[in-house]
Design a protein around this nucleic acid. Structure first.
Lengths: 122, 122
DNA sequence: CTGCAGTTTCGATAGATGTCTATGTTGACG
DNA sequence: CGTCAACATAGACATCTATCGAAACTGCAG
């Protein structure tokens, strides 16, 4: 093909979803529907065992980042791993960057802090 | 009836699931399959907007407890509310107690602390 | 240019989940 | 005892989701 412009459209749904400036602590006041919708996305992303293992693997990896090949050993096929990493990315919990052959994922530290605040006791 | 022993059988599946003594911080080391399975249950329970609103409503209510009638206004039918409260209970996030006509739900404070620890930064 | 390894995307499918209506249970009150 | 109100359970249904194999894409090395 030798094309040089093969991706004319980039879905904005691919964006990091801005999960950081999220919400008040859960026990401060009842969540509104909108707050709940936004916050539930993050919890839901961590609500799958495979995703939780992938997230933990990235978070605990040296330098806070890991390439897919480092963490693919979670008992499911490689496309499934990719699928879950995408979900975590869409939830704003991970970011990715391609360096040569490999793709590296890293955790967004501010997100961990934000979720910690959610669970703070009044 | 004036009975004193009317509940002969109580499913153990109804038990609080012992969510408290859970796991090390997510970023300490990669989770094992078993740890992930256990921990994901809690995140999953909070991964639904309606459940999150119900949980927030209970957590922020005076005294840390609320009767169902106080928090049922989340836009779904009454059986659905009951269903979600049951899920939260099974996940070990809420406990319930009947007092007369009303059933009161309250948060397990230790659970919030445990989940907060999960998200602690290394 | 061609092949290869790492990664993502696509299409399909089985199982899980959220929601409803209808019905059951429990306690309070005449 | 009868009725009403507060919750819970049961069953049905539509939608979502996790998973896989196959195929496409990307960068690197001959």
């Amino acid at each position: 093909m030798s094309n040089a412009k093969a991706l004319p459209l980039l879905e904005p749904s691919e964006a990091p979803a801005a999960a950081v400036p999220c919400c008040p602590p859960l026990s401060e006041r009842p969540f509104t529907a909108e707050e709940a919708e936004r916050t539930a996305r993050m919890f839901k992303a961590l609500g799958d065992p495979v995703r939780l293992r992938l997230f933990s693997a990235v978070a605990s990896h040296e330098g806070g980042e890991a390439c897919v090949c480092d963490i693919s050993d979670v008992g499911v096929s490689q496309p499934t791993v990719s699928h879950h990493l995408k979900k975590l990315k869409e939830a704003g919990l991970l970011t990715s960057e391609r360096r040569g052959t490999w793709v590296y994922y890293r955790v967004e530290p501010s997100v961990l802090a934000a979720m910690g605040q959610l669970l703070a006791v009044r």
